[in-house]
């Protein structure tokens, strides 16, 4: 039972991450490959605030989301004005820089040794969320709320402008809206919610190290997004479900022990390729990748 609850908790964390990535990638047409960097920044900020201060969960969440969002401005201020390939390269550079800093700034991050003993979050500053059941409820409530929030955002006037930017940025400018302004906010919000996922992860696992926030992790988040389908809310949720649950299901298909690990990777990879071939718009998407 605890194993299943652990999978569901990780699924809820990935729902946050993939939905966050959907805002710049799926709506604002910004292919960001530094989502894991924001996830990591959020996790390390959380470790600091949880270990130093006895703040309630809401306060830590707001601080971490704001600080992580502010870190996104490092990327936004220069490259969001640029487009396409330049932006992708800028986010790649940011991802590499963040990983390098987390790995080598040992005085602050303890580098490859990681940070152990991160305390649980405390609701209202008193009641500590502990154990797998507590985190199951917390992450379920959070991911449900974030799904509703992103759905509202998608169908709000702001979501309308982002959707239009994806179709035709020039026409959006000609109608008096500044695409850079809207993209910057999209990237800020996305980074903030990735930071929130980092907070949940850090306090749930109680240990973080830089290898959880690598470029591979960013690509994993994007894979989930593209498999589920970009530009809507159901797609990212389904994508997160697919990438988190499929490898776990493959553990129980009775593969011979000697080759099980490799075969699982091959089957998983082939399934991804097949989905992209048969449903280039993703399992629940309407927009085909260009």
């Amino acid at each position: 039972m605890e194993y299943i609850l652990h999978i569901v908790i990780m699924l809820n964390i990935y729902i946050l991450l993939v939905l966050s990535a959907n805002l710049p990638v799926g709506l604002a047409n910004l292919l960001s490959i530094c989502q894991a960097a924001f996830y990591g920044i959020g996790a390390y900020f959380s470790a600091y605030f949880l270990m130093r201060f006895q703040l309630p969960f809401i306060a830590v969440a707001l601080i971490v989301m704001t600080l992580t969002g502010l870190c996104s401005l490092v990327v936004s201020f220069a490259p969001v004005k640029l487009k396409g390939d330049y932006f992708v390269l800028a986010t790649l550079a940011f991802q590499m820089i963040v990983f390098t800093v987390l790995y080598n700034w040992t005085d602050v991050t303890r580098g490859p040794y990681g940070i152990p003993g991160i305390p649980s979050v405390k609701l209202f500053g008193i009641m500590s969320i502990s154990g797998i059941y507590g985190y199951f409820i917390l992450t379920a409530v959070l991911s449900g709320s974030v799904i509703l929030l992103f759905r509202k955002l998608k169908f709000s006037p702001y979501g309308r402008v982002l959707t239009a930017i994806r179709s035709d940025e020039l026409s959006v400018s000609a109608l008096g809206r500044n695409p850079v302004h809207f993209k910057t906010w999209a990237f800020f919000i996305s980074a903030g919610f990735s930071g929130l996922a980092g907070l949940i992860y850090a306090s749930y696992i109680s240990y973080i190290d830089p290898t959880s926030f690598t470029l591979d992790e960013s690509i994993f988040i994007l894979t989930a997004l593209f498999i589920g389908g970009i530009g809507n809310v159901k797609g990212p949720v389904l994508g997160a479900l697919f990438v988190v649950v499929t490898p776990e299901i493959l553990r129980f298909v009775g593969l011979p022990d000697a080759v099980a690990a490799n075969l699982r990777q091959i089957i998983y990879g082939l399934t991804l390729v097949l989905i992209m071939y048969l449903r280039p718009q993703g399992l629940w998407g309407k927009i085909t990748l260009k």
Partner: peptide, 17 residues
């Protein structure tokens, strides 16, 4: 049609909330 409106108030991500 709405996107072409001269009134862009409410298009900030937080105003709707």
């Amino acid at each position: 049609m709405k996107l072409a409106s001269g009134d862009s108030s409410g298009e900030s991500p937080f105003s709707y909330l």
